[in-house]
Write a protein that binds this DNA or RNA. Structure first.
Lengths: 213, 213
DNA sequence: TGGTGTGAACAACTTCACAGCG
DNA sequence: CGCTGTGAAGTTGTTCACACCA
């Protein structure tokens, strides 16, 4: 993979994720080769956009033919870095946390959930899912450091979000995916992404309101 | 509210959601007025961006002073259309569906969850949360039509997603928020938003990989 | 004086159109 | 011939800088 010097649009990364997701679901035997047109139809992206997205990272296709399905999937996984095994933790074992802990996706996409944390004494010590035992929030820093956990997923209530963020950071976490509907603060060295379910709903409400007017 | 003719960037809507979220959490008594600079700090958005975002919809501030906190919150809610009571349903009562059913956010933001659907006979007829009873997937079309449900939230596995989408559409649904990691298809008349948790994780993996290289 | 509102400059992203090559 | 790869054109979104006004 030859990464070119250009800055890559964030939207491109998002789409690469869509592509690899679709390619993975495709029966590779029946579809050994795929064109940007066909892939674009499934992913609802224009063929030109797909080719441009891929061109940031190299030349993966064959002119006049298309892309080798299996090879393309592997290339994109390599680009995204989801062929590693990122040691991951989930902080906050409410319903959303449990949903993530049971989410098949992780196993297939290079994330290995090592541990989970919660503040509820009734949950601590019990098994959350797949052999993952719930530990006390107060162990976060120590555990993140010792187990060399790279990624922390925050699914706590708003009130606890900044506190557990700080603990993860103190333990030396590399990246955080935050589901709590508040923008937590992290030092420059830590990569942060906020997922805002609320803003998705607000956006939907806006679009529906527009249609009415 | 005077909506101007300009097309509004989607990113603007996303930010408005952030602003209103923050304003709602603010003690309005202690902060009757807020400037774009202060608001921007909390929301991690530039002051100019905030003023531009708001300017698409009208003039809400006072020069030399700032914005009336409470009034601004109300204005943005009006813009987004989250001061209505959108009749909403959740399809798929797994862990994620349960998380949403118990999510306080809905009550405060103009979404009223009326019903929930699942295919599991053991769940049908039981109470999911807050007086919401789980019904069979086969009732979707009839129920959506009779209860005039506007918004459907899909939290089923991938395999069921398109099928329940079609049922919602047949019932006359207005908008869909899809959490299943597949791009479902809807007619032009239905507003669709896909939330991709997987792509958020992929994006985080990408950013971490970049940092390493 | 101080913070808003906004046209104009700038930057980022997408689409187009076609050259290039199997 | 057909589909990729890619500069160039077009479009969309953000930042700047300052007029404006309580």
């Amino acid at each position: 993979m030859k990464t070119k010097e250009h800055k890559i649009p964030e939207a491109t990364i998002k789409r690469l994720s869509t592509y690899v997701n679709y390619l993975g679901r495709l029966g590779t035997d029946s579809n050994p080769v795929i064109s940007s047109e066909i892939l674009g139809e499934s992913c609802q992206v224009s063929p030109a956009q797909i080719r441009k997205d891929l061109s940031y990272f190299g030349e993966f296709g064959v002119r006049g033919v298309g892309y080798d399905t299996k090879k393309l999937e592997a290339e994109i996984k390599d680009i995204l870095g989801i062929n590693h095994n990122w040691p991951t933790t989930v902080v906050g074992v409410g319903k959303l946390g449990q949903a993530l802990l049971n989410f098949d996706f992780f196993r297939n996409h290079g994330f290995r959930i090592i541990t989970a944390f919660d503040s509820d004494p009734n949950k601590i010590g019990t098994e959350a899912a797949n052999g993952v035992t719930i530990q006390s929030i107060s162990n976060i820093e120590k555990c993140v450091r010792e187990e060399k956990i790279s990624i922390g997923i925050i699914t706590t209530p708003v009130a606890a979000a900044q506190d557990v963020t700080d603990k993860l950071v103190d333990g030396g976490i590399k990246g955080i995916l935050n589901f709590a509907p508040i923008k937590v603060k992290v030092p420059e060295t830590v990569t942060l992404r906020n997922v805002s379910i609320t803003s998705e709903l607000d956006n939907l409400a806006y679009l529906l309101t527009q249609k009415k007017r």
